[in-house]
Simulated scan of single mutants.
Amino acid sequence: MDLAWIIAVAAAAGGPLTPGAVPVLAPPAALTCAVATPPGRPLTFAPRVGLTPRPVTVRGNLQLTGCVSPDGSAGALRSGWVSLRATADISCTSARHVRGRAVVVWFGWDGRPLGSSRIRGSEGSLATHRPADTLLGGTVTYGPLKGRPTAGGLMPDAGLIGCATQGLERLSGTGRMTFG
Rank of each mutant, 00 (worst) to 15 (best):
P23Q: 05
L25N: 11
L25G: 04
A26S: 10
P27G: 11
A29D: 12
A29I: 07
C33P: 04
A34C: 13
V35L: 02
V35F: 05
P39R: 02
G40L: 09
T44R: 15
T44S: 04
F45N: 10
A46W: 15
V49T: 13
R54M: 07
V58M: 07
V58L: 06
G60P: 08
L62R: 01
L64N: 03
G66M: 15
S69T: 14
D71M: 11
D71G: 08
G72C: 09
G72V: 01
S73N: 08
G75A: 10
L77V: 07
R78N: 12
S79R: 05
L84P: 01
A86V: 01
I90K: 10
S91G: 10
S91E: 12
S94N: 10
R96F: 06
R96W: 08
R101P: 00
A102Q: 03
A102G: 05
V104P: 00
V104I: 03
W109E: 11
W109H: 15
R112N: 06
P113V: 10
P113Y: 09
R118D: 09
R118K: 13
I119C: 05
E123W: 03
E123I: 08
G124Q: 05
P131C: 04
D133V: 04
G137S: 12
V140M: 14
V140D: 00
T141D: 11
Y142V: 14
G143S: 06
G143F: 03
G143D: 06
P144A: 05
L145K: 09
L145W: 13
L145V: 08
G147P: 07
P149W: 13
T150V: 11
G153H: 03
P156N: 10
